[in-house]
Amino acid sequence: MNIFRFAGDMTHLISILILLLKIYATKSCAGISLKTQELYALVFLTRYLDLFTDYVSLYNTVMKIVFIASSLAIVWCMRRHPLVRRSYDKDLDTFRHQYVVLACFVLALLLNEKFTIQEVFWAFSIYLEAVAILPQLVLLQRSGNVDNLTGQYVLFLGAYRGLYIINWIYRYFTEDHFTRWIACVSGLVQTGLYADFFYYYYLSWKTNTKLKLPA
């Protein structure tokens, strides 16, 4: 464990908690893509199949449970909470995410560390995390609504990606046999998509600030 990875995990967790608290506090999920949140929950559920079989460390186990619980809590809030679900932009959140799930699964069958159930699902979760932001990106382009996507959320999400890439560079230079091609290549694609999301976030935020007429 290095400081970059620890900080990356913390900023990732904080970004999820910020979103969950924002939805819970405002009882609104306007501008948030349920499909992206469902994909994130699927990422954690398929990545942590080894939760009960392989024990890496207490930190690892606790964080896995927290990630699964917080991502499912967001999906539950957006689907079941009587007040929150009313503000869901159902007719704008129309990205066909089932095709993305299928494509990632087929890719995982072809490209994985080892052709076992656990490894195929692990690779699937890595590919899926890279493209999970797409429904949110499309919704943001359509709605331009950043009410619930606070700047802090975007900031911590960006920090998570940046710190993980630094972590991989650090491990590459300090560990002799560090090769995580699947995670690194997919992580770079993910960071590229996040950069695109941040760009549209900035455009929407700038437009909104202009729209708010001076009092």
């Binding site: 464990m1 995990d9 990732h12 690892n60 080892k114 692990w122 046999h177 995670a183």
Partner: peptide, 10 residues
């Protein structure tokens, strides 16, 4: 002996 795959990252 194949290198054990360890997914220690979250």
């Amino acid at each position: 002996e194949e290198a054990e795959i360890d997914h220690d990252e979250l």
